[in-house]
Each structure stands twice: as C-alpha cells, then as structure tokens.
Design a protein around this nucleic acid. Sequence first.
DNA 1: GACACATCGTGTACGGTAGACACATGCCGG
DNA 2: CCGGCATGTGTCTACCGTACACGATGTGTC
Lengths: 236, 236
Amino acid sequence: MTDDGTNSGELLWDLDEGPARKARPTLTVDRIAKAATTIADADGLTAVSMQNVATKLDVTKMALYRHVASKAELVAVMTETAVGTPPNLKEIRGGWRPKLELWAQEMRRTWQRHPWIPAATAGSRVTGPREIGWTEVAVGALEGTGLDGAERMDAVFLLSGHIRNTQSPTTAGTQPWSLDRTLNPMISARPERFPSLVAAAASVGNAPKDNGWEFGLIRILDGIAKLIATRRRTKA
Amino acid sequence: MTDDGTNSGELLWDLDEGPARKARPTLTVDRIAKAATTIADADGLTAVSMQNVATKLDVTKMALYRHVASKAELVAVMTETAVGTPPNLKEIRGGWRPKLELWAQEMRRTWQRHPWIPAATAGSRVTGPREIGWTEVAVGALEGTGLDGAERMDAVFLLSGHIRNTQSPTTAGTQPWSLDRTLNPMISARPERFPSLVAAAASVGNAPKDNGWEFGLIRILDGIAKLIATRRRTKA
DNA sequence: GACACATCGTGTACGGTAGACACATGCCGG
DNA sequence: CCGGCATGTGTCTACCGTACACGATGTGTC
C-alpha cells in the first residue's frame, strides 16, 4: 500500500527469495470466503461488509463481485464451508437417543467455533448440500422409531432450533438475566411487579451457566422419547 | 398535501367543522410508533427505516429524532406496545400445564399479528416492563412444581424459543421443506445423497402444516412434565 | 402588546452499506 | 505479433442511521 522509498529496497532483496513470487495471489472464491470467515469469527457477521473483506485482501470491493454474485452468495459459501461435514451416526450404538445427543453436541461445537452461523442460516435462502447433510443424518437417526416422516423432520427442527436459541446472542431471544445468572437490574428493583422472576433468581441452584442448553436438550429428548414409546406401544 | 386550488375550497368549508383543526397533527412518540408498526406489520421490520416512517407521517426523518433518541429506541417502543399485556393465568385451573399452554397460545397469537416481533426481540437490548411481564407470569405458572428457580426460567426460555423458531420466517432456521411440506427440489433431485429426507418426505402423515409448532410444544411440555414428576417423587 | 425563549420541524452533511457499470491492464492462444 | 478475454479499478447511485445548524412558531413574562 505505502508507496515510499523503502519498498523498492525490499523489492530488491526479495529477488533472492525465489522466482515468480506473486506480490498478490490471485483472487478466488475460496480466499474471499476464508477472509470473510476470519472477519465473522472475530467481529461477527455484521462486520462482514464487502469493503471489509476487500480491504483484508488488499483489493477493491468491486473486485469481489468478479467471483461472487452478491453478498448473500458470499455468506452462503462461508456457511457451507464452515458447517463442515456432519458426524457419522451409523456407528453409534444405543438407538436414536445417543445418536441425536452426539449430533446436537457436534452441531453446537461447530456453531461455537463460528458464532455467526445461526445468524447466517436464519430466514429463507439457498441451502448448501453439506448443511442439508446435517439434517439428513439426524432425520436418519430417527428411522425405525415409529415416527412418521413429518414427525422425524419436526423433531430434528425442534432440536436444531434449540441449538440456535441457546447458542447465538444475536438470534436468541433476550433473557431476563445475563449469562452469569444475574437478574436484570430493572427487574430486581421492582420485586412487587415481578415477584416470580425475583423469587426464581433467588433460588437458582447450581445449574450450569449454559444459557439453558443442557436443560432444553434433555427436555426435548425426553419429550421425543415419550412419543416414540407411545408409537411402539400402539404398533404392538 | 397537494397545494392546488381545490384545497382552499376545502379549507373554507372546513371552517364550519370546528375551530383549530390542525392541518398536521403534532408529532408524538405514539404516532411515530404507530406508523412504524403499520409499516412493520405490512412489509416487515426491514422496511422500517426512519425515512419510511417519516414519509408516512409527512415529515422529514430528522423530525423523528425530536421524539425518539434512535431507531433502536423506536423499535423498543413499538415492541413494548405490540406485545400487549400477558394473559392472567391465575384463574386457569389444572396446574402448570394448561397455564403454560394458554400462555404459549396467546404469545403465538400476538406474534402472528406482528410477525416482526421475533426479529425485534432478538439479541441484547433494553427490555420493556410489559414484555418482561410475559416472562413473569409464565415463570409464576411453574411455582410449586418443585423446579428450582433456574429450571423455571430455563423452561420458559425453552418454550418462548420454540415460539420464536416456529413463528418467524426471519428468525427461524431454514427448513428442508417449504411451509406446504414440499421438499426442497435440490434434495428430491438427489435421493441417493439424502435418502432419509426423501423417505421422510414420502411418508408425511396428515400432520398439521404449522411449521412444527404443535409437535414441539407437546414434546417440550412432556419433557418438562417428566422432570416435574421426578421432583415430586424425590420430594416425597 | 412586545419580546425573549423554548420547542419543534427542516435542510444539509457525513460515513457507512450493496451494487451497477465503464474502463484499464495484463495474460494467453492463434 | 496481436486480438480478445479475464480480472481488477474507479466512479456513481440509492439507500441507511444520525449529527448539527438553522428557521419558524407558539407561549409566558414584563
């Protein structure tokens, strides 16, 4: 960038380092997506602007449009890369429940590595095959449980929705308390108006500070288990 | 608005209708919020820009800043007004479950009237007292169930998260099928890659087309019921 | 009744966003 | 050698939220 005299000196010395060293490697979709992902991981999806990505790659923002059609497409590519490949659940023994537990944990871990994924995968949009692959294996884990197709789909949607809700501060609803279980001061200052919330905050046990992740996971799986038990009974 | 000759005629006639009829009613927070809500109800929260709201009220956008400090504050006012007052659950008989069922239904209905609420209530922000009131009554419905404070809060959060996930197309995760249960064509074209999804889509029963709302609600409540049953047993 | 002042709406400006489009440059095949 | 095509640049438009100076207007006080 800086075009001062020192640069020419560096250029001379760099001649020793080998031939054909490109000053600027050519732009590819991959490099663009990687740069955008770095930004998103660090500063969130809102920090991903064409300008920011372009600056990081030392090009103008319009250069990016030679490789991606729109920002939405860029985000789609980022997402499809970041979600990775779903876990292989076929080798997991013990039926549908351990499989879904592993699946949920893996998904949660992936989303923790890339906290912007929930925001990027909300709303209607084009979905990539790898992302769909996650749904595929989860629905597959529920085959043979007696649930019909719609139920298997709904169960997986319920589970992934829970991950979304507990994982991302940007897509989750606002909680009355903060992450460390400290009640909103506006509430604790008005115990007569919000008695149940104040009482609940006063009697918090040693629950894990995971934004309700573990709690919800067990409740959902228990609920699904109950339905499956009913189906097996009616079938027999 | 139009400043043509017909207007003066109307003005003359209007003299009969009473004194002090203001051509433009003065701007108030209420009128601004109402206009913004109308826009959001019709075209979504993204259509709510200061410019659009101002145009609707026939003022410049900067005039709005005399009454609201920022757009975030405007959205907060809109939300607090739109959520309304929570239902009175104390009169509902039959224990926690019918109470929470009614609560969830009422919340869902409110959110259906204003589909932008999920998007407006996501992320960290200032929460209004009426909105917190909804959480208050739901947590209150779980008192006396044996759940500790954190569990009562987590249960309500789980439930409202489910409403959010099934209610708003903008905050929900993308489903492999559309609202009418038609599988994404990208999936149905590749049955060898997504066998479980194709199989599930083929065996959909007469499940309600409610985006998994009813399914998830029952599963979650069943899961909570199981936990409550455990607590009662250990207590006794 | 005049005048100062507070309130409220206007107009202009700034930095940010996504993206359309014309132009330059450099590489590669004939 | 040379023409064409791919790729990156520069400029422009239409938005977004919001800071700030200005003018009009209505109101309370002397």
